[in-house]
């Protein structure tokens, strides 16, 4: 008759239990990271049209890089009220501003030295957003392939575009 040794059965059980306890509690830890992105509004979010006062003060700031005085704002708003076609009124006022040597306008040489940066700056200046890759490619190509295009023409196109009427 053989002798009964209880530890022969208990030892493996204890070993399995210990292993389960140790290994089942080990949790994998993850560290997430994000790429650095500059967030700016896209044109889809612009659904409010600018009032006349907003338009003229923003336009003046964009062109002169300084604020419009209250007197000038009243005069310009009255003037725009006196013309039925608002877009036409804005176009003539922009065309008048462009005759003023005080407006802050890059030179053609500056534009052509780095068209990519010029386009990005112009989008930020007038439309308060970064251009999409398609928009950037269009304008860079347009400027590079047309030597007669000036920064003034680009500014007029942006300041009279439909998107510029919205915020």
């Amino acid at each position: 008759m053989s002798t009964f040794y209880p530890w022969r059965f208990l030892a493996p059980l204890l070993l399995i239990g210990l292993s389960l306890t140790v290994f089942s509690c080990r949790e994998k830890s993850y560290v997430y990271e994000v790429n650095e992105v500059t967030v700016s509004p896209n044109n889809a979010e612009k659904d409010k049209d600018k009032t006349t006062n907003q338009f003229v003060s923003i336009l003046y700031s964009n062109l002169y890089q300084q604020a419009l005085s209250p007197d000038q704002q009243v005069d310009l708003s009255d003037l725009i009220a006196s013309i039925g076609d608002k877009q036409l009124a804005y176009e003539t006022i922009i065309a008048k501003f462009l005759t003023d040597p005080d407006i802050v306008l890059p030179s053609p040489a500056e534009m052509r030295a780095d068209p990519t940066q010029f386009v990005i700056d112009t989008y930020r200046r007038f439309l308060v957003r970064t251009p999409t890759q398609a928009e950037l490619a269009f304008f860079v190509n347009y400027i590079e392939s047309r030597p007669d295009v000036t920064p003034e023409m680009v500014f007029v196109a942006f300041a009279t575009s439909n998107e510029y009427f919205y915020y």
Binding site: F139, Y142, D148, V149, A157, T160, S161, E163
Partner: peptide, 14 residues
């Protein structure tokens, strides 16, 4: 030129 560039801007906005 101005009209062409504006047309492009308007199309993306439209």
């Amino acid at each position: 030129y101005i009209n062409e560039m504006r047309e492009f801007l308007n199309q993306t906005f439209m």
